[in-house]
Design a protein around this nucleic acid. Sequence first.
DNA 1: AATGAATGAGGGTTCATTCAT
DNA 2: GATGAATGAACCCTCATTCAT
Lengths: 189, 189, 189, 189
Amino acid sequence: MEASHGKEALILKATLQLISEYGFHGTSMAKVAGRAGVSAGIIYHYFSNKESLIEKLYIREKHHFINLVTAGLDQSLTVRNQVRFLVRKTIEVSVLMKEEMMFMEQFLQSPYNRPEIQSTVNAMQKPLTDVFLRAKKEQIVKPLPDAVIYMLTLGTATKLAQQHAEGAVHADDELIEQVTDACWEAIRL
Amino acid sequence: MEASHGKEALILKATLQLISEYGFHGTSMAKVAGRAGVSAGIIYHYFSNKESLIEKLYIREKHHFINLVTAGLDQSLTVRNQVRFLVRKTIEVSVLMKEEMMFMEQFLQSPYNRPEIQSTVNAMQKPLTDVFLRAKKEQIVKPLPDAVIYMLTLGTATKLAQQHAEGAVHADDELIEQVTDACWEAIRL
Amino acid sequence: MEASHGKEALILKATLQLISEYGFHGTSMAKVAGRAGVSAGIIYHYFSNKESLIEKLYIREKHHFINLVTAGLDQSLTVRNQVRFLVRKTIEVSVLMKEEMMFMEQFLQSPYNRPEIQSTVNAMQKPLTDVFLRAKKEQIVKPLPDAVIYMLTLGTATKLAQQHAEGAVHADDELIEQVTDACWEAIRL
Amino acid sequence: MEASHGKEALILKATLQLISEYGFHGTSMAKVAGRAGVSAGIIYHYFSNKESLIEKLYIREKHHFINLVTAGLDQSLTVRNQVRFLVRKTIEVSVLMKEEMMFMEQFLQSPYNRPEIQSTVNAMQKPLTDVFLRAKKEQIVKPLPDAVIYMLTLGTATKLAQQHAEGAVHADDELIEQVTDACWEAIRL
DNA sequence: AATGAATGAGGGTTCATTCAT
DNA sequence: GATGAATGAACCCTCATTCAT
């Protein structure tokens, strides 16, 4: 019963791995099939084309990522602490989901990215962005454009995980706490 | 002698434009030749292959970028103000050099990037990184790993320019000053 | 027993429609299955392969077509009027059976056509060709090869229907009568 | 000097042969390359894609065909005799250009055919169609739609050549004369 | 120095057919 | 009888690179 969907999952997993390893350019449908242990043709049974395969993978991974980051978000905390929670969690989850993060970063700069996709993602991110909006409304963070606020916090968090993945730094608990501090200092009023 | 370098420059310029417009995947050697107004074959007279062409372009643009950012760096300023100068200048230059920035960002995540190239770049960046090292030594910024310090300042500065290029924000003088502040707050002790 | 033939008929009908709409090249077995509302696999229960499906469809449609054209052929008429009857009827039926005609025309020029199939068809056409043979024997039409006689009459009749289908002409009763005249003039002695 | 164009001609020739032998469906670009003795890639240096290759071939062959048919058309003849000349010549040329005729016939029913192409062809055919228009104006042929007139003459002429190619009849001088007669009888007033 | 024709491997995709269920 | 997932060969096309001119 889940065997029928097993193949679709294998294809998605293989795509994720290959793109994180070799990039979009180095990931052909034939390689995906090979890594997934299926024939090339069957991919088109589950996905209408390469673009659709990659889009669906992106949406799925982004969804998963957001779920992990917002899981355990405690609304009874102060907004300040909710912001810090989200930054810290973004780093932690990004560090753990190395392949997924590399894929998602690459996607953003690939020709597969389209405004409609980011609209979909923005809608999914609402639970997350709401916290930052509230912080701005309560005037505990600077009155900067939303995009700048996210860049200074979640963007930085993601970048730290990238540096960790590249081996440039080691993101242990202490460093994660320090960077969470730094992000907060960047936006606090 | 100059004529021959003229053609090399045309090729590099065409490559830069095309990659910033269409990405690596959408930039074939034939298109480069077409845009540069030269034959496809002659590219291989100046560059041994596509990889080499793109590497040389990256090094050249990075060099140019660093020169522009560090130009006018006043050693008589306080270290704090030198740091702020570099952050502000990084934003300003990045905003002006849109195509170059997009190319360099794409390069970093492309399969053309290699550790040796980043070593070369790191050497070029010494005048720039020295300022940050001094700031750390003088204990006016947090004792974070160098990579993290750069990420929180120059990385953020670059990212702001990207957002500006995408139209997500408008990087006017006021916003540039605010983000420079934010970066400084992130790393100051 | 009837239910099973119902599915076979659906498949044949879908094939006819699709080929008349999109041609042989644009008609995949998957599309046939979709249009017929059956699974792709079941087609191979009724037909051993695509070639066989198309052959059977051709024979069936040709048979149907000949039946319609020869229905009502009155042996008590003069041979001249029997010939004219057949020409007129060929035009009329062809105009009405647009899809079937387009399919049969395409079949003739496709790689699915084979001499054996035309032999089978020729046998079916005997009631029709007999009239022309008698006309030749009675020396009321020119002593041309049979194939030429058919070409000048039935071939032309079919072509008129094609032009009608393409919209190049409008085959109303008057034009049908005129072309019937023309065909007769072409072969009469 | 003509060597550079030699390859384009080889490709066109190979395409013509293969389509006349195996039809559109049986003629892959790889087979064309093989038959022409060139690599598959070079075809796209001369033609932007398969569609363009086939279109250009069709236009070229049609042009050639019309030139041969109208060559030697004597305006000092009576219109009746000019019509007969064109019919006879159409048969003769079609019989000689077997491959070209089969290709052109297949093209008409292929998905590569488009209204714009037929417009282009119609313009080329003007010297030919003008003769028939004059015959209608002089009221020596029936007042039938142009398309029907062409069908009854040139269409039939072409069909005879097809039958000859298939071996159904042998189009010798006598038969050609007889069919020319028949076509004339079909349309004369 | 310079051209652009030529190659051939590899790209994404389609499709007739098979087979476990 | 019936399904539709699965295969794999073939399809059209692109591209970095080479080489005769």
